[in-house]
Design a protein around this nucleic acid. Structure first.
Lengths: 163, 163
DNA sequence: ATATATGCAAATTCTTTGCTGCTCG
DNA sequence: CGAGCAGCAAAGAATTTGCATATAT
């Protein structure tokens, strides 16, 4: 590997978290952190890699996978399934956000509900647990839609634990 | 393909739905429907195939994939991601159910909340949509747990649209 | 009878890993 | 310096598909 100039600029929120948690900050991790910090959509790993490459084309896909996995383990990132065959990498935020997914178009809208959040805390408590986080997807069709509840598409989901 | 005796017995709830929706009922689909109707856990595709094979060992994995995809499209089944690297095939039920997932052990508890359900309907409405269904996972640790919100494990999620 | 399913194996796509040379702290 | 990274290519795992044959209606 040839020498490479460290990228410049302020640290992203994610980079800050890495330092706080004692994660070694390499140049490629910095790029991934930066790209993710600037996202206002929900990229999957391949898309994330595409964007990362625009900053530094030499960063390998496997590095992105490894970085995301590491930061997931550290509680900094989360890989989230949005159903309908989509998944994304997102920053873990304190209260979290949820997604409304339009079935026909695939359009995604983020939303939050403190009421739901509080109910969830209560449910966990009542069952003897403490809530760490949650994921909620709301699948919808336009209000005027006449059609029934026919699914848009099958979607696969591939699971398994990573090390 | 050699001739094969149709399996006997009453129709499962899922088979009933297939007939109603005009889905051609083949012997292998009947087996998949039956196995799923009898599940009281959350099997993934591979596990589903394993159980299907116990009934008829000649049913191929690809058939199970195709059947699940078809029934998802018909709004009879749903493939659901439980986070932490697990996904499952489940029957779509009217109001739906949600999952509480214990992060350490991976234990899964189903729950329902009418309050949350109502809130979701309202949220969709307010945004100009009609809710078709939702998915909600609640990740927890035992109440007495001292540890923070460190993630259990990275997990992959593989998305993509099917046919 | 005939449009559709199924099995099988090969092809895709997503993800991880082994190895070796680099780099952060 | 020295433990932990990044690249690359190859291995693995999950899922789909092409094609010839079998089957439901």
């Amino acid at each position: 590997m040839k020498h490479r100039q460290p990228i410049s600029g302020d640290l992203s929120a994610i980079e800050r978290l890495c330092i706080d948690k004692g994660v070694r900050v390499t140049n490629q991790r910095r790029v991934v952190a930066m790209v993710l910090s600037e996202c206002c959509d929900q990229p999957d790993i391949q898309e994330l890699h595409r964007r990362v490459r625009k900053v530094d084309p030499r960063i390998a896909l496997s590095t992105v996978y490894r970085t995301v996995r590491l930061l997931c383990n550290k509680g900094i990132l989360n890989r989230r399934n949005l159903g309908m065959g989509r998944a994304c990498v997102e920053r873990i935020s304190d209260r979290g956000h949820d997604y409304l997914v339009e079935l026909q178009s695939g359009k995604i809208v983020e939303f939050r509900s403190n009421e739901i959040y509080r109910l969830l805390v209560g449910i966990a408590q009542r069952l003897g647990y403490r809530m760490v986080r949650h994921e909620l997807q709301l699948y919808v069709v336009p209000a005027d839609e006449t059609c029934g509840s026919v699914q848009r598409d099958p979607l696969r989901t591939r699971p398994k634990f990573g090390n």
